[in-house]
Design a protein around this nucleic acid. Structure first.
Lengths: 195, 195, 195, 195
DNA sequence: CATGAATGAGAGTTCATTCAT
DNA sequence: TATGAATGAACTCTCATTCAT
């Protein structure tokens, strides 16, 4: 009968917003509490620690993303369509979980050492395999150029997608799908005019 | 008038390494001192504060980068060659100042509010004008496609270049020039095979 | 006018157990509530504060003990028989209120300063007079040796009795009476073999 | 050249005094710092934590005590003389480390569970063997009565000795040796007059 | 009677910084 | 130049307590 899970979710969204804006380490628990309209100590009724808030934010985001990627990969599309679907799914996740993505971008390098956040490295490996596998399939199918270093290309693509979280504003003029289309056009066809 | 500018430079390089690895806020002065083989208090003979170390690291890096960009823009190249030169210069700076670039990437969003770091926003504006101007020139000259959103394209290009600092390892297999070539090929021609 | 004095007693017994095991200061209200199968806040329906639980536990124990001592002293026994009766009564109280005795032992030194617990000092004085008076009577009656320092002897006897609360287990092999007998034999006759 | 070890010792003595007076849990780090004439945070230059202060106090005390007991046991005395020497050594330790002994008495029951303080149980076992072995030797040699429960007797003796720390005042009228003599007379010969 | 959520004071601890030596 | 010791503010977290439901 208690609407508790909602409250948790609200608080996590608030915390994510503050973490994204200031960085995890630079954010004080008091600031989160202020943003949530409560006292710092009160947060500890809902969460064990500041770290466990971060944990829950990242784990929730990564679970959702994994599900989307799995759905895309299970759809049996060709390499080019798979890349398009992965990019579009990614931009949609950025639109839905902008704060979580920004936190992920900023903190994941430092966090990966920490045992508690080992799942970050796991997820990253899984995602890497999805992208790399698709790029390889595309090269084999002659959809993608064979003369590019695949690992470098993967990194370029991955970074460009995710770093968008740092400037994307949901109230802006571009829908996730529009951004995905522009981005795909850039990366697939290049910006140079074809003669 | 302290007589050892070299020592300063060494200490700043050490501090930059630690900042890049752990994040500025998460780094303690003691950790920097440990890495430098001295005690925390001793750093204050060389620097006013932790913040002024950050300041000097970023300012030095941005000054250098500005000089390179100015040189490129002053060379009177065509739009495509200018883009190529800017990208190559950027990857060279990443190779030379990896830690500083990583810090810049991580901290610049939070820092821009802070008056002391107003020059970050200035620099960013200056760089934005360089990129945007060149892209516009390229579109006008029909070097670049006219159907792309120029601001989005700029963001894609800018982010992908700089985010490379997070994975670039100077001891790795790729020279900055090689990375620049691959990246330019990707972004100019696209990864799709042309029929 | 709360209608369940039994519940109060159960809760106090639970609290006493936890206080005895962990110390009063180191015990949290939540731990007591956990042990009682309720939430921390719910305890405040029954008690004003954590301190008032401690108060009630100690006062109840001391009231009972005072009654036993009074009964012994009113019985008009000789000094030796009085000592024997006091010791036996004490071990019986330890058996019945082990937790309260343990708390009393641990906390009474710190608590005596606190005005609310002034009755601890009163009781202790009363008990001291009972023991000292009996020892003096015994020395006068040549039941007890005259060459011992009576205050030191009192302290030795008192401490040995009460400190037993820290190791006494009601389910162990020794009844309170058996322990009292052994102890009295030790203190009255000594452990050395008589020639 | 730094007199640091002395400072540590002074601070530990101060902390021990406060712990003994108020109990470990009820003592705040600020109270210790006040007593030492410094700020709370400054204590952390010298110690890792409040707990590590407790640790060092207890370990130092137990190490010293163990050395004394070992010396006594190595002296090859008869059972009665060994008991006398152990008791005297104990009262001397109480006189020298009154606060540490008081803390040991109060906190050791709760602490024994804690892995960090496992050495408390070890030491206690070692001491128990020393006392029990000597009592057994004494019974075998007909120095001590055979009709007493040896474990009970051990507990009586042990507790009475150590609990003296709670009332012993070094500036009082009794030297440790005097107290030991009185106590030994009580426990060896008994307080009853011999016919 | 008990819960769930919050309060607010204060606890232990961290850390940038200072300064006499 | 560097050290050792201390400062003081702020931080994360705890906990007794309150109260509407």
């Amino acid at each position: 009968m208690s609407p508790a899970p909602e409250r948790r979710g609200e608080l996590l969204a608030t915390a994510a917003e503050v973490f994204a804006a200031q960085g995890y380490s630079a954010t004080t628990v008091r600031e989160i509490a202020d943003a949530a309209g409560m006292l710092a100590g009160s947060l500890y009724y809902h969460f064990d620690s500041k770290e466990s808030m971060l944990d829950e934010i990242l784990a929730t985001f990564l679970d959702g993303l994994r599900a989307r990627y799995d759905a895309v990969l299970a759809a049996g599309l060709g390499p080019r369509e798979t890349i398009e679907a992965l990019v579009t799914a990614s931009f949609r996740e950025i639109a839905r979980h902008r704060a979580a993505v920004a936190i992920y971008q900023q903190e994941s390098p430092h966090l990966r050492t920490h045992p508690r956040f080992g799942y970050l490295a796991d997820a990253q490996q899984k995602f890497a395999r999805a992208w790399l596998g698709t790029l390889e399939r595309g090269v084999a199918a002659k959809d993608f150029r064979a003369d590019l270093d695949i690992r470098l290309t993967y990194r370029f693509v991955r970074d460009t997608v995710w770093v968008a979280a740092s400037w994307y504003r949901p109230d802006g003029q571009h829908s996730p799908e529009e951004i995905a289309r522009q981005y795909l056009s850039t990366v697939l066809e290049g910006i140079a005019v074809r003669e």
